[in-house]
Design a protein around this nucleic acid. Structure first.
Lengths: 339, 339
DNA sequence: TTGTAGGCGTTATCAT
DNA sequence: ATGATAACGCCTACAA
C-alpha cells in the first residue's frame, strides 16, 4: 500500500466560529439558512466563511444527517452493449433531470465485471446513496440482493423476474403484438422474428407478443434467437433465418439495432425492403431513422422511463410505499418505410 | 419539506463488540483485516458480525479516514450529444476498468444543466470523491474552478485551454494532417472540410491539421463550420458546402458522425462516394463501419484515453506530481471505402 | 493481543 | 438569539 499524503487541511465550522467570534452552533445555523440569527452575527459569519475559505464536509454531514442527498443510477450491462444502446443514455438523462429538479445528485455506476459487482454492493451497503435506479438488473445479482436486504429505496427499469420491487417499464407484449399486427396487415404471409435477449423479461415478452399476434399461423421455425440486442446479432440472426426460409416476406426484429443488422444481411442477399420483405423493429432508437429505408418500429419513451423511475425512488425516500405492480409508460407504433 | 422517515437502525461496531464480548477496537481490526488478533477473538467477531448484520458505514469511515475511495467521472455535454457520441461511453468504460482494478469506485456524473453545475461543484467541494476524470471541460466552468481551487487530483480528457492541469489526449493536429494527406494522395483537387466544435481544442486542432496538410492550396471558403460533432450538423454542413462548391471532390469531416450526415446529404444530391467525392472522417466510432460506404477515418483509442486519465488521477491521489504536459495516446489512420 | 479514549466535522437538543 | 454539549460510527494511537 503506497503512502497517501495528507490533503491540505480545510477550514471547519470551528475555524469559522473562532474567526467570527461566535459559537459553532450559530455558524451551523447560518450555513443551513435557518431563522433566529441576528443580522450582526450573520454578517460576521459570512465574512469569516469567505476569509477562511470554509466549505462543509459532506462525510460529516452525511454521518449526522443519515442521508446523502444522492441517488445511484446503476447499469449492469456488458461494456460493448452499454456503448451501443442509445436507450440507456436516454434513460440516464431522464433520471438525471428528475433528480436534479429535486436537488439530488445522481451518480451513475456501470457494472462491468465481477469485481465491480462486489464493490458496488459494498458501497450501497455503506450508505453511499439514499436510493437507486437500476437498469437491466440480474435477478440473482449481489447488488439486487443488497437492495432488497437493506430495503433501500429503489426502482427497476424493466421487470426483474421474481422480485417484488418498484419498477417501470413498457408493455412489451402488447407493443410487440401491435407492431406485428400492423406488419400482418400489409399482407405478408411468411413472417419471421429475430428474438433477442431471451434471458430478460423484455426479450421474452416481445417474443410473446409476436406469438400472440400470429395466433394459429405461428411457426416456431420462423423464429431465430440471438443473445443480444445488437447490430451484429441482427446480421447473424438474419443469415440463419434466411438459410432456413429464403421465401420469408416479413420480419419482426426484437430491436432496431437488430433490425439494422438484418437489413444489411437482406441487402447482401439481394432482397429489397420493403418490396420483397417488410421489416419492423422495436425502440425507435437513433437507428430507426438512419437505416435505408427508415424503420417502422415501436417508440419507447426512454427518457420517460428514467424520469418515472427517478420519481419513484424519490417518493420512496420520502417514505411513500412503492407501487410494486409496476408503472407502465405508454408506447406507440411509428410507421416508416421499411414495411 | 416532507418528512423523511428514519431508516431502520443498523448495527454498529459497538453492537458487534457487545455481541462478541470484546472491545470496539478489536472489532475494527478484524473488519480491516489487520494482524494481531487471536483466532478466538476473530471467530467470535465474525460470527457476531453475521448475527447482528453489521456493515461498515461509509460516511463515518470517510470522515475519519479523510478519503472516499471513489473517483468521479464528469461529463459535461449537452444531452443529445452525450447519447449520440460512442466515444464517451468507451472513455467511461476504460476509466472504469482502470479504477476498478485499483479498487476504486467510479461515479459518473452528467452535467446537463446550469443547476447540475452548481450542485456538482458543491459535491466536489464537500469531499464526495478523492479525484475526478473530466471529459470535455469548459474552461470557465464552476466545476473546473473548484477542481483547481481544491487542488483535487484530476485529469482532463482533451486539453482544456488556458488551464494547467493533467490531461490526456490525442494529437488532433497531426492526425488530421495525416488523414487529409492520404485523401490528397487519392488525387482529389477540391477538398472541403466540415469543421466542428471550434469552441473546443479538438475542433480547432483538427482544422489546423487540415490547413497544414493543404498548405498553399488551402482555401478558407472550402471550410464550413458547424457547432457540434453530430450527425445532423453533418447534414447541414454538407448542404452549405455543396451550395457554395458543387464541384467539390473531397471532404474531411471533423468526426464520423459529421461524416455520416454528410454522406446522407451527398446521396440526396445524387453524388457518389467515393467516385465523385472522397470522404474521410475522424474517431473510428461505430458510425464508421455502418455507413455506406464504410468510412476511412482516424482511429481514436477512446478506451485508452479513459484508462490513461484514470491512471493519472490515481497517481496524483498517491501524491505523485501530475504530468502537466499532457499524455498523448497514439492514433492511426484506417482506410476503408469512402475515399 | 487487547482495551481505552480521543477525534474526524456536523447537526441538534438543550438551557440560557 | 446564542452557546454548550452530546451524538453520528469509525479508526488509531497509546496503554496495558
Amino acid at each position: 500500500m503506497p503512502e497517501i499524503p495528507a490533503r491540505r487541511k480545510r477550514a471547519t465550522v470551528h475555524d469559522v466560529a473562532v474567526e467570527a467570534g461566535v459559537s459553532r452552533g450559530t455558524v451551523s445555523r447560518v450555513v443551513n439558512g435557518e431563522r433566529y440569527v441576528s443580522d450582526e452575527a450573520r454578517k460576521a459569519i459570512e465574512a469569516a466563511i469567505v476569509k477562511v475559505g470554509y466549505v462543509p464536509n459532506t462525510a460529516a454531514r452525511n454521518l449526522v444527517m443519515q442521508r446523502t442527498q444522492a441517488v445511484a443510477f446503476i447499469v449492469h450491462e456488458p461494456g460493448p452493449l452499454f456503448v451501443e444502446d442509445p436507450n440507456i443514455g436516454e434513460i440516464l438523462l431522464g433520471a438525471n433531470a428528475a433528480l436534479s429538479d429535486a436537488d439530488y445528485q445522481m451518480a451513475s455506476i456501470v457494472v462491468d465485471s465481477e469485481r465491480d459487482t462486489e464493490r458496488v454492493a459494498r458501497f450501497l451497503r455503506g450508505g453511499f446513496v439514499d436510493g437507486v435506479v437500476m437498469v437491466s438488473a440480474r435477478t440473482n445479482d449481489p447488488i439486487t440482493r443488497v437492495i432488497e436486504q437493506l430495503e433501500l429505496p429503489a426502482a427497476f427499469v424493466g421487470h426483474p423476474p421474481g422480485l417484488t420491487a418498484a419498477w417501470v417499464g413498457i408493455d412489451n407484449v402488447g407493443s410487440a403484438r401491435a407492431v406485428t399486427e400492423q406488419l400482418i396487415a400489409t399482407g405478408r404471409r411468411r413472417i419471421g422474428m429475430i428474438a433477442a435477449a431471451l434471458d430478460r423479461d423484455s426479450g421474452v415478452d416481445r417474443l410473446q407478443g409476436f406469438t400472440d399476434a400470429l395466433g394459429d399461423r405461428f411457426d416456431a421455425d420462423l423464429v431465430e434467437s440471438v443473445p443480444l440486442y445488437s447490430y451484429s446479432a441482427g446480421v447473424d440472426g438474419m443469415r440463419a433465418l434466411l438459410a432456413r426460409h429464403p421465401d420469408l416476406d416479413g420480419l419482426f426484429a426484437a430491436s432496431d439495432a437488430v433490425a439494422a443488422g438484418a437489413l444489411e444481411t437482406l441487402r447482401e442477399a439481394g432482397l429489397r425492403v420493403p418490396e420483397d420483405v417488410g421489416v419492423v423493429g422495436f425502440d425507435d432508437s437513433a437507428w430507426a431513422t438512419r437505416t435505408h429505408p427508415p424503420l417502422s418500429t415501436v417508440r419507447q419513451p426512454a427518457a420517460g422511463l428514467g424520469r418515472a423511475a427517478a420519481l419513484s425512488v424519490l417518493a420512496q425516500i420520502r417514505g411513500e410505499k412503492p407501487a410494486v405492480d409496476g408503472i407502465m409508460v405508454e408506447t406507440s407504433v411509428v410507421w416508416r418505410e421499411s414495411a
